[in-house]
Design a protein around this nucleic acid. Sequence first.
DNA 1: CAAAAAAGTGCAACCGGTTTCACTTTTTGC
DNA 2: GCAAAAAGTGAAACCGGTTGCACTTTTTTG
Lengths: 340, 340
Amino acid sequence: MDSSVKKNVTITDIAAHANVSKSTVSRVLNDTTPVNEDKRAAVLAAMKEMNFEPNIFARGLASGQSYTIGVVTQNLGSPFYDSIAQGVIAGLAKTAYSPLFADAQWQPEVGKAAVKTLIGRMVDGLIIVGTCPTPDDLEELNQNIPMLLVGTQVKQWPDRCMFIDNEQAAFEATQHLIELGHKKISHITGVPTHEDSIGRVKGYRRALKEANIDVDEDLIYEGNFDGESGVAGVETLLKRKKSFTAIFAANDATAFGARLALYRQGIRVPEDVSIVGFDDQTEAALVTPPLTTIQQPGDEIGIAAAETLLKIINKQEPEIQKLTAKLVVRDSTCPPSSGV
Amino acid sequence: MDSSVKKNVTITDIAAHANVSKSTVSRVLNDTTPVNEDKRAAVLAAMKEMNFEPNIFARGLASGQSYTIGVVTQNLGSPFYDSIAQGVIAGLAKTAYSPLFADAQWQPEVGKAAVKTLIGRMVDGLIIVGTCPTPDDLEELNQNIPMLLVGTQVKQWPDRCMFIDNEQAAFEATQHLIELGHKKISHITGVPTHEDSIGRVKGYRRALKEANIDVDEDLIYEGNFDGESGVAGVETLLKRKKSFTAIFAANDATAFGARLALYRQGIRVPEDVSIVGFDDQTEAALVTPPLTTIQQPGDEIGIAAAETLLKIINKQEPEIQKLTAKLVVRDSTCPPSSGV
DNA sequence: CAAAAAAGTGCAACCGGTTTCACTTTTTGC
DNA sequence: GCAAAAAGTGAAACCGGTTGCACTTTTTTG
């Protein structure tokens, strides 16, 4: 019945149609060797007329290139990682490359498997966001495949890491609270072993130190970047009966959780307690009160990562851009009153 | 210098090592033809020993299969689409297939291009979430590639569409408000042309009708699924000076926006105005007050979609599961008092 | 103007699998 | 116990591109 099964057009068809050899068609396709203008035109015309699309498998098999970039994120749906993914999409949009996303689901083994799958899929390069596999794993997996680590700082590969200065951003977030007059500032951390977390804690501590405020370890709660840990953090702080007038949360989700726990206790934000988050995810501007937070330029990071990786692939000199986060002041912070 | 460039192991190597022919190795690999147990064991051993991974290009070129499923979403980072994506990942996890994600960025042309790219990448099947290209476009693009539409209802392909009953879910959301005693219930819609939106408006109207409440067109505001449109919706409603005691928002983002606008006016939620959202995105449980909303089983949808598509690919009888959303009651709804 | 360099082109090998076909060996059925 | 069916196997063609090589033609150079 179905006589309409279109046989795919191949370069052999194009070659026949344009009266040249396969090689010439391939050369037109790849610009590897000069081709006479007449023939080039004929080939191009034939390709257009016959609606030719090169077979990616044949191409990949012969050339070893897939024109695919693997992107591993901790979690595609997390707002910050999504914005990076969007950036990568944008950065690759005008090129011959497509991104292939994989999700590490916050689990190192899953991340490792994801990298393996991507390598199996012959990606030409890898963008790993948020250090899912350990550096050792990467070393092991590294089949000399161009690789860029985003949001991590691995000492071994200084020129393969692209990250924002978490320490500095956290410093500014904390300083903002200090400048408003806060002295009893709590910090709810992210996953304690996570690079980003560690940097943010450092920045928090440094800001206090520079303002000659003693760091009270009881005001630091170890969270895990989840909303729930924000809730638990505030509950614990309240249980400790330490008074505080402000909270610096390791990310927005944590800030939301903290805000909710305060709400349940009837503690007002920002009148009683100010909150600063980190990420500036979409909802940060919509919650009540709109959240003061650190804006990470996720899309810019993504674009820069894509461009840098392409340079590495093409053996050009990559230049790692240092990207900076900035404080966005909204309504969740104000000068302290009594505190709790 | 670099003498460590590992030549990839091919089936020819395995064949030599196991003293069989390439064909036999391929047969072991694909289970297409019975192979003697001894040889099978030898081949398997050789594969393990030499750490063999089949070259996906060669395989694809020869067999025409890519073992890749293309997934097009409106926006990877949107909470609901992300949960579907996660579901697809989970549904494909134990199979030989990997997902290849593309982002339509809410733009039909981008979606169309994305589908084209995916087809160019020789995906074995396509999951299109949220009807990005029009059915006509799909018809045009449809190179007889197995395809599943999620979250859409296209009359032409009843057995290729998987969707939740938006109308029924919206009915229940509205009914919840009615049961609490609300009569002046506003609705802020999503993108008016969007299937999901249309269904939700229908459900809203039906619930009112069945409760013998006249639908007041002035209480319906045309939004676009954005937080901003929630803000604008409430501002407009207030400007219209129509009183209302509850809002049914087309999705959670809209609900957040509505809640923010009310907050700015000093209108309390839920005491003065109750709000119901739609999606149950992560933040819904974290905002203040935690949002009553419709929970869409995104991950289940994703898993079901993956499984169904695989069936279609393998020419098995697909059964389209009807998935249902359910109301999650939190703290943003309560019986009406005065209203505004 | 001759020699050298560059442009232009096709043939054929190759990338690493899958699959048809022909053929041999083992099982099954009666 | 013999014919027919099923199992088991390898050689070789094939999938659709890329690329090294040999060769011809044109352009550049001194």
